[in-house]
Design a protein around this nucleic acid. Structure first.
Lengths: 334, 334
DNA sequence: TTGTATGCGTTATCAT
DNA sequence: ATGATAACGCATACAA
């Protein structure tokens, strides 16, 4: 792969002249510039950004860390980040943490070694957040989709209280009083807590025997947990499922067990992933503005990188309920 | 951000000693090594991989180019690439081309400027392939999920003939003779051609009025195209849909129009994305080994990077039909 | 065991 | 308008 020096030799000029010519400097005679450019073209010269950013400073690269890729939730967030970044000439480097704290820290380390200009973390663990507190002076960092809007960091997240509250109000309005919950151990713990607290606020207790949580985060997990729930002697009339991925499987399990949704059981998801509108029964769920989160996170980060922004900002989005076909009135109460 | 030189000053030694110490060289006294390491730890030293790879050569980074991320098909391929890469210490840099040739070329250029060790391209356009022919001497490149197994490049792809052939045989065995096709303009053109040719081989013509192709690549596109197809005066008994994303929408459109699937119409997809097994009616489709493709592509690339492999290899996978619930006998012929 | 010197590819600051 | 040179952060062959 050819470099400036070789180009300089061929053109019979100094490297510095070549550098200037290729960077369209005014201070180089049009003829030599033309010569150099044609030479560069001819020999497929590709500048070495490693060297360039060594002397310069910036990279025009941001690191993005997500737990998993198969989850379209994260794909949408990334989509937002990518667009916002692209518009301003940044490319993405990314890593997948599998929800593992050590992986997160390893990948953050890699990002730093690569001298990315900034890092966006999605759904990172609390432990990792602690780790970040030490790094945030060295490099701009934005946390997306986190549990709490940490005041000492740049954060983009949603108002869980509001989102889950919408679910509860919706179900209460339909007359439901017996609730169940299905979730996973990584993504949804806060939703469970918020749900429980919200119900308690209405004097309703969420029975432990109606709570099903496990590792699996996709349809299969929801399917299995709903099957377990249906095996209980008494069955709730409404179930809140922590993510749409799980909810889609849960709806299927219910229907396959002969339980009509929503006639005999209402089910509400969370996220509003793409598949939800096209599920077996279009899913009632809480819309997280995923791409928006990505865009905002990237915006915050770029503002930090360019120095436009000082201090830390917390952006808290309101996730709105989207009522579709999996929720209805309590059986027998029309 | 601290560097070797500063560390050297603090330790009262030369940079080279620090470098050796941090790289665990034998040629440094245990005591000084310990001192230097503790110093590095204390001051949060993070090596600069830009500088390192400037002098060295390698990057331990590979560039991955996909058309889109929301498509779980690509997410799965990436998953495979990422795993295979991770195992050998490589991280990913990636870009999204939106199926646009110019975007692809721009991103490839970016990868090269960043001096990635190699590039994997998914579903790249023919035009881009031409472009790559010039670059493949400068950098290892692997093409994944392409139309043809170009003999002069490293390629991982599937045997379309075989996959589509399986669909045709399956439908013929059910007695179908009237076929329709739904696809998109970016991903599926080859599938349409293969389908048409395959049918012709059985003396069956695919009528133009039963072919629906458009831009949209997700459920909505399939929904719309199936709606159009159903508006035709005569309706095929079986429809091959070029991707599962489209197929899921197509099934929904059929059912909402009162056409029972598979009783009144058989529908077959292609890809076997995660959602397909959990669709409204579990989808009969052709399984593309996506993660496997990713792993293999990455394997080929790493072999090229490390110099283990010479020449070009074409890996052609056999995509197998997965029979689920959207296909059945021709109506009235039980 | 440690230091010296050189080079990686590029940009930038001087001169000329 | 162009050349010489230093500098970016690090690794390494060679000396000591």
């Amino acid at each position: 792969m050819i470099n400036l020096k070789q180009l300089a030799q061929m053109a019979g000029v100094d490297v510095s002249t070549v550098s200037r010519a290729l960077n369209d400097s005014e201070r180089v005679k049009p003829q030599t510039k033309a010569l150099i450019k044609s030479l560069a073209e001819k020999h497929h010269y590709v500048p070495n950004d490693m060297a360039r950013s060594l002397v310069g400073k910036k990279n025009d690269t941001i690191g993005v860390l997500v737990p998993e890729l198969l989850n379209t939730f994260y794909a949408e967030v990334i989509e937002g980040i990518e667009e916002a970044g692209n518009e301003r000439g940044y490319s993405l480097m990314f890593g997948k943490s599998r929800f593992a704290g050590e992986e997160e820290i390893k990948l953050i380390d890699m990002f730093m070694r690569r001298r990315v200009d900034g890092i966006i973390l999605c759904s990172s663990s609390r432990r990792t957040i602690e780790h970040l507190r030490k790094l945030k002076k060295s490099i701009p960092i934005v946390i997306a989709d986190t549990f709490e809007p940490y005041a000492d960091m740049d954060v983009v997240t949603i108002d869980h209280e509001y989102g889950v509250g919408g679910v509860i109000d919706h179900l209460l309005a339909f007359g439901h009083r017996e609730f169940g919950y299905i979730g996973d151990s990584k993504i949804t713990p806060l939703r469970l807590e918020t749900f429980r607290r919200g119900l308690a606020g209405h004097g309703i207790e969420l029975a432990a025997r109606h709570i099903f949580v496990g590792e699996e985060r996709y349809e299969e997990g929801g399917y299995r947990r709903m099957t377990e729930l249906l095996a209980q002697p008494d069955r709730p009339t409404a179930v809140f499922v922590g993510t749409d991925n799980l909810a889609i499987g849960a709806v299927r399990a219910a229907r396959e067990s002969g339980v009509k949704v929503p006639e005999e059981m209402s089910i509400v998801g969370f996220d509003d992933i793409i598949a939800s509108a096209y599920a077996e029964v279009p899913l009632t769920t809480v819309l997280q503005p995923k791409q928006e989160m990505g865009r905002l996170a990237c915006g915050l980060l770029l503002a930090k990188i360019t120095g436009e922004a000082a201090g830390f900002r917390q952006v808290v989005l309101k996730p709105e309920l989207v009522v579709r076909k999996t929720t209805g009135a309590v059986p027998g109460k029309g």
